[in-house]
């Protein structure tokens, strides 16, 4: 064996990868070749030094950093995980989405088409007795109040055909539902523009030039005051009294003074 062949085997010799016969041959060579023996010594020592290089622990925030990078790279995934990562998060997210839809629909209904587009086929000038209902009503019940309150087929049909029937409920608990009829389109539009901006009233335009207003009894003076600049009055005045704890439905005639 020459020196080159011997030194080509150093690595396998160090790793115990050599066949027994080759081990014998190289040991014989190392015993007789001083230079190769010295190189073998350096070789072993360099490997020993290499063995001293121990793995370094990664920084403590290593995993956090990876997740931050992933969040930047996959924002939608992260967004979904944040929203639906746990049952509690899912519940919260769905609640928020539900509320968002609620207000979205509410805003849509705050800007309905002009009332002048409504058919002007008749009028309700009569005052009807109220139908007692529990003060705290479920949304479904509250939306059907006019239909329950009024036996008139025309009125009932009008309410069912209300394009704003999906409108959300008022955030307050109304105790009076007032139906208002204004014969002229101009009056209705003025009235609607005025009423719809009020937070504590809920105004629903229905057909036949009629508005439906949910409000609390204490708001009635305010309603009168609001109507006054438009030279509108409500009649009969006495029918506006509501019984405590009961929702009353009152139909009013509004006339130009």
């Amino acid at each position: 064996m020459n020196c080159t062949s011997a030194q080509d085997m150093f690595s396998d010799l160090a790793d115990d990868e050599l066949a027994a016969v080759d081990v014998v041959r190289i040991e014989e060579h190392l015993a007789t070749c001083r230079q190769c023996a010295q190189e073998w010594g350096y070789f072993k020592k360099s490997l020993a030094w290499l063995q001293e290089v121990q793995p370094v622990a990664p920084p403590a925030d290593f995993l956090i950093g990876i997740n931050a990078k992933l969040d930047r790279e996959f924002p939608i995934t992260t967004w979904l995980r944040d929203l639906f990562g746990s049952p509690l998060r899912t519940l919260s997210s769905l609640t928020v989405v539900g509320l968002a839809l609620f207000f979205l629909i509410a805003n849509d209904n705050a800007n309905p088409p002009p009332l002048g587009h409504m058919a002007d086929t008749g009028s309700f000038t009569h005052s009807q007795s109220a139908t007692n209902q529990p003060t705290r009503l479920l949304s479904r019940q509250l939306k059907t109040i006019p239909a329950i309150s009024h036996t008139s087929a025309t009125w009932s049909n009008n309410v069912q055909a209300n394009p704003y029937r999906l409108a959300p409920l008022p955030t307050f608990t109304p105790d009076i539902a007032i139906t208002v009829h204004a014969p002229s389109a101009e009056t209705r539009n003025l009235l609607y523009q005025r009423l719809v901006s009020q937070k504590h009233w809920r105004v629903h335009p229905v057909r036949n030039g009629t508005l439906l207003i949910y409000l609390n009894e204490r708001e009635i003076p305010h309603l009168r005051h609001t109507l006054a600049p438009h030279r509108l009055t409500m009649t009969p005045k006495t029918s506006l009294r509501a019984q405590a704890g009961q929702l009353r439905s009152v139909s009013l005639n509004i006339e130009t003074q």
Binding site: F10, S11, D12, E39, Y42, F43, S46
Partner: peptide, 21 residues
């Protein structure tokens, strides 16, 4: 792999030989 590893180890050894000695 074996031959490259042997060559690499020799290169490393030669680089630090003055320290190893």
């Amino acid at each position: 792999v074996k031959s490259k590893l042997n060559r690499a180890r020799h290169t490393l050894k030669n680089k630090i030989k003055h320290l190893l000695s």
